[in-house]
């Protein structure tokens, strides 16, 4: 039986949409960029190498906690042994990336992006979706989107660690402080973008003050909420910038580690 815009009592129009603009462009760009990132991140996660060049460490491999990690790359030590499957060493990045991936997968902005572009639910506003049934986020697995706040909290820990990595990058390869290279700035920019992405998050906004019923009784939280709300306006931008930033930071460290680039020192 016909449903949706083709339901029996609605205006008889055979087209799924009458939009004349290029509504398909945005989902196409989203799919292209996200797929490119997924392919690159998968390649790097499985590569299990070229992620450390003193004092730079790739954000894909930080914190490196496995005994398989490159020497000097483990900021917090190596409490975990080497994990092998079928004789192959499991890349530490595969364990690390679960958390940022979970944070982004459950992010309110990315949900919009991938529901539209990958699942066509809907592909664009007022463009009929192809699915016969729809239950939204009311049942498994999508009900798990409600775990976003836990990934947000874990994401904050990662931000602290990646900020520490950026600070440690203001050293030279002999671990002497007071030096700055292109790599220092790349890691610093990456950490900054990640903080902005986290601080502009809807869950952050809720936690800071959004859950209150009464702003006037909590003036400090209200002030913090207004700041986070201002950042929240740009959450989409920060989501993309930080995604590209983390990929670029990894790419830069890989090129330095493999010897393709020399990490230029300003001083």
């Amino acid at each position: 039986m016909a449903t949706g815009v083709f339901s029996s009592k609605r205006a008889k129009i055979s087209e799924r949409t009458l939009r004349t603009d290029r509504w398909w462009l945005q989902p196409l760009i989203t799919v292209s960029v996200l797929l490119s990132f997924i392919v690159y991140a998968s390649f790097r996660a499985f590569e299990n190498g070229n992620y450390f060049a003193e004092p730079l460490i790739s954000p894909f491999y930080s914190p490196c906690l496995s005994a398989a990690c490159a020497q000097g790359s483990s900021l917090l030590g190596q409490p975990f042994g080497i994990f092998k499957i079928l004789g192959m060493t499991f890349s530490p990045a595969l364990f690390i990336l679960i958390f940022p991936l979970g944070f982004r997968m459950t992010c309110y902005y990315y949900r919009k992006a991938y529901y539209r572009s990958f699942w066509a639910s809907p592909p664009a506003c007022a463009v009929a979706e192809p699915h016969a049934k729809y239950t939204g986020e009311t049942r498994a697995p999508l009900i798990m989107q409600n775990s976003h706040r836990y990934f947000f909290y874990i994401g904050l820990i990662f931000n602290v660690l990646l900020t520490a990595d950026a600070i440690l990058a203001f050293r030279n390869p002999e671990k002497q402080w007071g030096h700055m290279s292109v790599g220092s700035l790349v890691l610093l920019a990456n950490a900054t973008f990640l903080w902005l992405y986290s601080a502009s998050c809807h869950t952050c906004r809720h936690t800071i003050g959004g859950r209150l019923r009464n702003f006037s009784s909590h003036p400090i939280r209200y002030k913090a909420w207004t700041i986070v709300s201002a950042l929240n306006h740009k959450h989409q931008n920060f989501a993309w910038i930080s995604l590209l930033g983390v990929a670029f930071a990894d790419f830069y460290v890989r090129q330095v580690s493999s010897g393709a680039f020399t990490n230029f020192y300003f001083f």
């Binding site: 309110y108 539209r116 809907p122 007022a126 239950t135 986020e137 009311t138 999508l142 809807h202």
Partner: peptide, 29 residues
């Protein structure tokens, strides 16, 4: 829970109410 926050409601609102960011997502939280 049926809402998957694709923000079309916000896009079409002639009063520019940020329906998704200021009402639906805060309610979901």
């Amino acid at each position: 829970g049926m809402c998957n926050i694709t923000k079309c409601c916000t896009e079409v609102c002639p009063e520019h109410i940020r329906i998704t960011d200021n009402a639906i997502i805060p309610m979901k939280e």
